[in-house]
């Protein structure tokens, strides 16, 4: 995380009006496509007052949707963190047969439409398939139940962590890990004390993306969920149902939860980065003082 060198900001030769025009254009875009929609979500949610907003969120079906969404994210995020780190480690550190195939497969969820992803699980685990029938006979429902929702979510959020880490780990190289091994560290010590600290920003970013997508996923989850109110509705599905019923306050109140989650994750990321920069600046100052003293 190197902060930009102040001198390098002054190296453009564009004239003042051009710079202002470009900045204004960018800002206008941000306002038009990000700020206004975001504000309108909250505007609509609070349009009938705080009481109705609160009511829309504490009704049992809304609470159930929130619970299910959190549960899904709670399972999907750790799973994909473990998988993503393992896959990135394997791809960035080792040469093996089928490596390029694995790299391509990791990207598959990005290239497949989420609806198709949901359909795959219905075709695999649906009640009319051998696997689904067997599971159902043993009292385990996948489709139109929570396991199906979790599966679909894991699938669509599969690539985020791995995609974030692979280029990072490839760029960093294996030298530091090898240095740790030569110094007598075990594989686990090397991972915990050298690999993990080096990839933590990429990993955190991957987690944030995975979490955002896990909570916001609509298409794949919609196919496998069955839209059973109070049972298999996640927040996005809940929003759709309410919206289709012309319950705009309820729909936007639930939508505002998702929007809020997005803002919180952004704030968290910014805060952590700010702390990190400050820590480095402090270290730099200490060193400069030591250098002056020496």
């Amino acid at each position: 995380m190197s902060s930009a060198n102040p001198a390098s900001l002054r190296t453009t030769t564009e004239s003042r009006p051009v710079r202002y025009a470009l900045t204004a254009l960018a800002l206008a875009f941000v306002v038009l496509f990000l700020v206004i929609p975001l504000v309108s979500v909250f505007w609509e949610a609070f349009s009938k007052g705080w009481g109705l907003y609160r009511e829309a969120l504490v009704e049992p079906e809304a609470l159930s949707a929130i619970r299910l969404t959190l549960l899904t994210a709670l399972i999907a995020v750790p799973f994909n963190v473990v998988f993503g780190v393992a896959a990135a480690w394997a791809i960035a550190r080792f040469e093996f047969r089928g490596k390029s195939l694995l790299t391509t497969l990791i990207d598959l969820p990005f290239s497949v439409s989420p609806v198709v992803a949901g359909m795959m699980y219905v075709l695999l685990f649906g009640i009319n398939t051998p696997v689904g029938a067997w599971l159902d006979a043993n009292g385990f429902k996948v489709i139109f139940a929570v396991p199906g929702i979790v599966l679909a979510t894991v699938f669509v959020t599969f690539p985020f962590v791995a995609r974030e880490l692979i280029p990072l780990m490839q760029a960093q190289g294996a030298d530091e890990e090898q240095a740790a091994l030569v110094l007598g560290a075990s594989g686990w010590q090397t991972f915990r004390r050298v690999t993990l600290p080096n990839i933590k920003w990429g990993l955190l970013y991957g987690v944030i993306l995975t979490n955002a997508r896990a909570m916001g996923e609509f298409g794949a989850v919609s196919v496998v969920s069955g839209h059973i109110r109070g049972e298999t509705n996640t927040i996005p599905l809940h929003v759709e149902i309410l919206y289709n019923e012309y319950n705009f306050v309820g729909a936007f109140a639930s939508a505002s939860i998702l929007a809020l989650l997005a803002l919180v994750t952004l704030a968290a990321k910014t805060f952590v980065e700010w702390r990190m920069t400050r820590q480095h600046a402090a270290a730099r100052t200490r060193t400069a003082e030591a250098r002056a003293a020496a």
């Binding site: 270290a283 060193t287 030591a290």
Partner: peptide, 10 residues
């Protein structure tokens, strides 16, 4: 020894 608190990048 005067660089004990520095980071490698420095």
């Amino acid at each position: 020894d005067w660089l004990a608190d520095a980071y490698p990048a420095q």
